[in-house]
């Protein structure tokens, strides 16, 4: 069997097993990723949802929700928190403890906002999916996060 034939066989088997396994598993993912829905209207945030959702918000919406007193969760790693946080935001590297904290503060139904360092960080979205698995219904990912918040000159809170 030539190297080329081996490569073709390994790739073909991997593609088939990968696709078939997604057809039979209970936690299958869509074949093509769908972008997260963007929330433009503040009233949509306050709706009670029947299905758990993760939605995206921009800086303007984040400002409005912060004013309305929604809980903000900082998804950045602990070493970045000394730079400061959005006022009243909470953070914990241990997602189990973080979940307990959120449950204690607002319960599972109310919406809350997660942010990380910037547009490209990804950890806010990652944390959103992890918390959704804990049963949280209404999660907002603040695109732009810490960078856009500080660039806009908005208030921050520095902890010792």
């Amino acid at each position: 069997m030539s190297t080329k034939q081996q490569v073709k066989l390994i790739i073909t088997v991997s593609v088939l097993v990968g696709l078939i396994s997604n057809l039979v598993r209970s936690d299958a993912i869509s074949w093509v990723a769908e972008p997260i829905k963007v929330v433009k209207n503040v009233n949509d945030v306050l709706l009670t949802l029947s299905e758990p959702e993760i939605r995206e918000i921009d800086l303007g919406m984040a400002k409005s929700l912060h004013k309305k007193g929604l809980l903000f969760v900082d998804a950045r790693a602990e070493e970045y928190l000394s730079d400061g946080m959005i006022p009243d935001a909470i953070a914990n590297d241990d997602v189990g403890l973080l979940s307990e904290q959120i449950e204690y503060l607002i319960g599972y139904e109310k919406g809350f906002v997660i942010y990380c360092s910037d547009d490209d960080c990804g950890s806010s979205e990652e944390l959103a999916y992890e918390l959704q698995d804990f049963g949280y219904m209404n999660i907002f990912v603040f695109k732009g996060g810490w960078k856009s918040w500080t660039n806009a000159g908005l208030e921050i809170e520095i902890h010792d």
């Binding site: 390994i10 790739i11 991997s14 593609v15 696709l19 396994s21 074949w31 990723a33």
Partner: peptide, 18 residues
């Protein structure tokens, strides 16, 4: 175009088989 899902379904099995 959201192809990361397809890639994420195939690459791990490719890694396992190799």
């Amino acid at each position: 175009m959201g192809f990361e899902n397809l890639i994420a379904l195939i690459i791990p099995w490719l890694e396992l088989f190799i």
